[in-house]
Every structure is written in structure tokens, then in C-alpha cells.
Simulated assay, not measured.
Amino acid sequence: MDFNFDIAAQFTASREGLYQCLHSDAGNWTFGAVGQGNLVGTMRGISAPVMVRWLGDASMVTKTVMQSITQDQFNAISRCLYWRAINGDQLPAGVDLLLFDFAFNCGVARAAKQLQRVLCMQPEQIDGDIGELTLAAVLRAPVQDILLSLSDRYRRRLQDDLGVTSDGIIGPGTLKAVKAQDARLRVLIYACASQQEAAYRSFKGFAQFGRGWLGRLDQRVEAAVALLTAMPALA
């Protein structure tokens, strides 16, 4: 939703570090690959290639420029390149933060395509662009379709939230509770979170960084659900 950007940006900023410059990190090189371009580092989660995109000229991106990225610049870059890219102003509360932080962390196209798959959109519609068709599906896709994307972990969490037997089986009792408690958007958040977890586990750096990635996911889901439940009339 349009007034949730500040909340989402603060969430993401608080989970990104300040300046670092590792030779082995592709995100610290201006051309996005180790040894390609100049080694200038990353600041507040803004990678060197993202800064090149922002400024439009790789020669302008230096270590000094990266070290000087302020919170205001972070907000401007993240609003333009991530929040607007996922159409955050038009997404329901909670879903917006969940997709924004994952997009910032793992890429806009990946986040958007995951959402489109969760909504069971047609293959030709899974294009990584959260436009009118995707936004309509966010509001209208059958909850039974969305439930198909939940992992066992999030099926059980949903059932715990709904106060039904936590057996990981989505049967008539769970479906009845989802409808009675108007929990469709909670289902959507958990379905997207299931796909985000699967993505993290598929990354080759999972053995080294997976614990941190999954910890951030847990925090992301908590923040998303908190936004959703804070504005039930708007969600």
C-alpha cells in the first residue's frame, strides 16, 4: 500500500549492513562479476551494479561514492528500483513488505515470478511484471489455488493461527476457518514465504549463509503479518 513504503524501507535498511568491500563478492564489482569493472564495495545493501544503474555511468561509481550513500539515498534508490518495480503502492498491506524485502535481497523478477506462480497464473503471464493482471489475481485468485504453494511448515503455521488442528493437511476444517476468519491474504503471505524459503535453500551459498537468510525470512514474515493484521479493513 502507498503509505507502507517507509515501514518496508526501514525494515530492509535495518537488516542491511554499512560499507563492505570484499574481493570475492560479485556485488562489490561495478559490472556485477568478480574481476569485472572496479572493486568499489556495497553500502546499506546497495550493490555496485545497482549504483551504476542508478547513476547511469560506471565511471561515476567509486569507493568514495559507495561509502557516502546516505539513508535518504537508500530510500530513493529502493523506492524507485524495488518498491515501484513490484508495484508496492497497489499491493495489500503485508504482501507489499514481504515482496519488497525479498526483491531487494534476491531480485525483483524472482520475487514477482514467485508471486505469479503462487497465484496460479498462466505460464505466458509469469513475466516478472506485477501489472494489472497480477494485481487482479492478488485480489481474486481462489484461495484453494494459493494454498497449493504452502510448504508443510507454513501449512501448520496457518493452522495454528486459525486455531484448528495443526496436522499440515488442508482439509474442510482448515478451509472453513480460512473463510470464516477472512484469512486469504494471510494464506498469500505464507505461500510467498514458502517459495522464498525454497529459493534460499536452492542457492549455492546456503550452507554458509542459509541460517542468516532464513532468520531474515522469519523476521520478514512476522513484519508482514503485523502489517496485515494492523489494517484488516484495508487488507
Rank of each mutant, 00 (worst) to 15 (best):
R117H: 02
G35S: 10
S166W: 03
L150V: 13
F74H: 14
G131D: 04
A33V: 08
T174C: 13
R110C: 06
N75Y: 00
D160M: 10
K113T: 13
V164I: 14
A33P: 06
G41D: 07
M66R: 13
L119Y: 00
V34W: 13
K63P: 00
L135P: 01
Q36T: 04
G88F: 03
A33Y: 12
R117N: 06
S151C: 04
V108L: 11
N28A: 15
D160K: 13
M60K: 15
L158A: 02
W29H: 00
L147N: 12
A103L: 10
I126K: 05
I46Q: 01
A112C: 08
W29R: 02
I77N: 01
A85P: 03
V40N: 09
G107S: 05
T42L: 02
W83K: 08
D127S: 12
Q73W: 07
L133I: 13
D145H: 08
M121H: 10
L119Q: 13
L39F: 14
V34Y: 10
D129Y: 12
G88T: 11
S78P: 02
T62W: 08
N105R: 05
F104Y: 13
M121K: 10
C106L: 05
T134L: 01
L115S: 02
I146V: 15
F31L: 15
Q122N: 11
T42D: 02
L81T: 09
V34S: 04
E124V: 14
R156L: 08
G107P: 08
Q71N: 14
M60T: 04
Q36K: 14
I69T: 10
P172I: 03
G27W: 06
R53I: 00
W83G: 01
A137N: 04
F74S: 12
D127C: 12
L115M: 05
P92F: 03
E132G: 01
Q144Y: 11
G168L: 09
N87V: 02
